[in-house]
């Protein structure tokens, strides 16, 4: 028997309260209980990173967390990036650098990039690729993805420092 739990979470600044089964994966909670379909399900075993979200500001794979574990926590999904019809700077950078092809992996990459900027690190090349290793692009469009993230980090972190 799966247990049931009442959980309260803040997602993209909005408070939600829901009943969930103990076995409910966080990614399925976001998609099916909250209707936030921007977080994608890929491998369901913590390899592909398509389900990457921010948990209290840190990137995590939401297929590797149970929904009740998020009780009382704050989450950011891709829906929380753009505001008032304007793209978030990371989305703008991906558009400029053509950092997406089919787009399936994109939400995960965007959140990984945002978390890097929040840590205040400007990385490029190999060290940036190491930080992005938890996100896979099966179109293999890594060159432009890395360029987009480099561009975003230079702009965002660079200007914060400047």
């Amino acid at each position: 028997m799966s247990s049931r739990h009442r959980i309260r979470v803040t997602v993209n600044g909005r408070a939600y309260e829901r009943d969930v089964q103990g076995r409910r994966l966080l990614v399925d909670f976001l998609r099916h209980d909250l209707g936030l379909y921007g977080t994608h399900v890929g491998c369901e075993q913590g390899v592909c990173g398509a389900c990457t979200v921010l948990l209290d500001g840190q990137v995590v794979k939401s297929c590797l967390m149970l929904a009740p574990q998020a009780d009382g926590r704050t989450l950011t999904t891709v829906e929380g990036l753009a505001g008032r019809g304007e793209l978030h700077p990371v989305q703008e950078a991906f558009r400029e650098a053509h950092g997406l092809q089919c787009g399936y992996c994109t939400p995960g990459f965007l959140l990984s990039a945002v978390a890097l900027a929040d840590r205040g690190v400007v990385l490029e090349g190999k060290s940036l690729r190491a930080e992005l290793a938890g996100n896979l692009c099966r179109c293999t469009g890594y060159q432009n993805i890395v360029e987009a993230v480099e561009r975003y980090l230079r702009q965002t972190v660079g200007s914060r420092r400047g």
């Binding site: 247990s3 103990g22 076995r23 399925d28 009740p68």
Partner: peptide
């Protein structure tokens, strides 16, 4: 796949 039922 999804986990089989369990008590959390």
């Amino acid at each position: 796949m999804k986990p089989a039922p369990f008590e959390y």
